[in-house]
Computed example of a mutant assay.
Amino acid sequence: MAKTPAQRAAKHGESATPPQTPVVNTSTQRSPQKAQGNANLILIAGSAASLLLFWYFHMLTLQQLTDLSDGLAMPQSMVFGFDMAHVEALRSAMDADALGQLNYVQKTAGTLFALVFAFSAMTMIAMNVAKKAVRWVLWAFPILFAGISLWGNASIDAMLGAETLSAGAVTLPSTLVSLSWLLLALTLLSIAVALFLSRRKKPAPTQS
């Protein structure tokens, strides 16, 4: 009958049972350089996608939809908001198919742009700002931008599809659109601040 490790140790000494060392899987360990490289790849992909979606949504599709609205601008493109007269003219000029195209575009490209841009901005801020309190302050702008943009798109859809138009139904989406453009600018500013803080914390090169 085979002896237990304790019995072998009692007979032959501790050398009979060599200590067992834990097996370390080095393939799962990542160096800081590799982690930084992965974050850079995510950031590059997110930035490229944000630029593409902004161009597709604001510069291409919304501009093309003016062909279906007698040249009237889409609400999402109006940085300083819009009034009831503009919305009434827009509702009269656009038929059900045109309104359906606008609704589809803002639910797809509009939603993707808001989410991808906010995520990319938060990633860039996280990579360049070490202090948690400062990071959360700068993160507030892209988070608010995404939320306000999605809310604004939904309110525009409800406004254009309403049976009767009221002043309140126009004021809310108009305010949300203006806020979304302001938050877009503040998000870009927060990215610039994050990059500035990152450059400040880097030690200056020593001169020989």
Rank of each mutant, 00 (worst) to 15 (best):
G147L: 07
I42T: 15
S47H: 06
M127N: 05
M94Y: 03
G100R: 04
N128C: 03
G46S: 05
I44M: 08
L68W: 04
F82I: 00
T111V: 01
L52M: 14
L102M: 09
D67N: 11
V116E: 02
L150V: 11
G110L: 11
W151G: 12
A98Y: 09
R135S: 00
L51T: 08
F80K: 13
A45M: 04
W151D: 10
A49I: 10
L115K: 07
F117W: 13
V105Q: 07
L160C: 09
G37R: 02
V137I: 13
N38V: 15
T164L: 12
T108A: 12
S166F: 04
D157E: 09
A89V: 06
L160Q: 15
Y104G: 14
I125L: 05
H86M: 02
A49K: 12
M127W: 13
F145N: 15
L102D: 06
M59S: 14
L72T: 11
S149D: 09
L65W: 05
A169K: 08
D83L: 09
L165C: 03
G100Q: 03
D70E: 11
L99I: 02
T61V: 15
G110V: 10
L144A: 09
N128S: 06
T61S: 15
I44E: 00
A118F: 05
A140C: 12
G152H: 01
L99N: 02
F141Q: 13
A140R: 14
G100V: 08
A39Y: 15
A130G: 10
L112P: 10
G46F: 01
A96T: 09
S69I: 00
L52V: 13
M78H: 03
F82D: 02
P173Q: 02
W139S: 05
M59Y: 12
G161M: 12
A114E: 01
S149C: 07
G81L: 01
L62D: 03
L90N: 04
F80R: 14
D83I: 06
D157Q: 10
A154W: 03
S155C: 09
L41K: 01
W139Y: 12
P173A: 01
A109T: 07
S149M: 05
A89Y: 03
F119V: 15
N103Y: 14
F57D: 12
T66A: 01
N153Y: 13
V134A: 14
G37K: 01
V134D: 13
Y56C: 11
V105Y: 07
V116S: 07
L144V: 08
M124C: 11
A146N: 07
N38T: 14
T111D: 02
L115N: 07
V134M: 15
L115P: 06
L144H: 04
M94K: 05
F113K: 03
L144G: 05
I156D: 00
A48N: 11
K107P: 08
N128V: 05
L41F: 00
G71Y: 10
A140G: 06
G100E: 07
